[in-house]
Design a protein around this nucleic acid. Structure first.
Lengths: 135, 135
DNA sequence: TTATAAATATGTAATGATTACAAACTTAGA
DNA sequence: TCTAAGTTTGTAATCATTACATATTTATAA
């Protein structure tokens, strides 16, 4: 995938930090937090600042190439996959999985008077790995 | 509704603070934040502490008579309605509305390997009032 | 009723994520 | 090469939440 082209196409000047952060989001689909992104990338970019991570993610969100995933109150996660999908968090191991789904299949009873622009679906429970391991 | 009985039935000793906070949650269905709950109730209970509000809400959640609503990253809201329902936040006026729905109608493509315990649905967009006012 | 222990509530201080802001650095164009 | 604009950085400020110690209330039994 052409990360630089994708940034440019969304009016984002492709600086080293921006390319690396976007690339990281794409290759680490575990929906990382700012802390994770920062600590993993600081090895590669020693001058990296946490403020830059915050600024860059905000820029991505404003320009529509990333979004936040807030399953729990206390942790904000980030996602570069912009296709419609749900998220599942295992409350045993803490991993967050993508769940493919067709949001148009959801039927609401009285949604007429609202103009829905975004739909977020968060599921919680136990993932297969934890169900099998029974730890 | 018998608030005291409901608290007792869920192993919560009905102190004044607990009764008032639970009552408040039931009567203010705009999904208030800790800040709102505290500042509205402190008139009635002048000695009320914000810590008590936090502690009490945590107790309610642990005992299954309330839940958190986290539509945005930066604000945690609380809800005493435990029936299955979705939430809609108007990004114009900021109000949060309950949306009745039957969660069992949702069809996921590959949910087999997960054991889903909780489903949260958050919608964002414009509410009817804001669409009409065109402010 | 009174003494005692357990449960609740309170206030202050600590924590930790996020944001504000100013300075340093980099890039692109004249 | 100079300048201006854009980008990155580090520090300090903010703000919600939690930890914790103290005070208060409640329940129980002598």
């Amino acid at each position: 995938m052409d990360f630089v082209g994708h940034l440019t196409a969304h009016n984002i000047k492709p600086s080293l930090q921006r390319i690396k952060i976007y690339e990281y989001l794409h290759e680490n689909r575990a929906h990382p937090t700012v802390e994770t992104i920062y600590s993993d990338l600081v090895d590669e970019i020693p001058t990296l600042s946490k403020t830059t991570v915050y600024n860059t993610l905000k820029l991505f969100i404003d320009n529509g190439i990333a979004s936040t995933v807030t399953i729990e109150d206390n942790e904000v996660r980030y996602d570069a996959i912009m296709d419609e999908h749900a998220h599942f968090k295992c409350d045993s191991c803490g991993n967050v999985y993508d769940i493919e789904m067709d949001i148009s299949t959801i039927k609401f009873k009285k949604i007429n008077s609202f103009k829905v622009e975004t739909t977020n679906i968060y599921l919680k429970g136990k993932c297969n790995k934890c169900l099998t391991n029974k730890n």
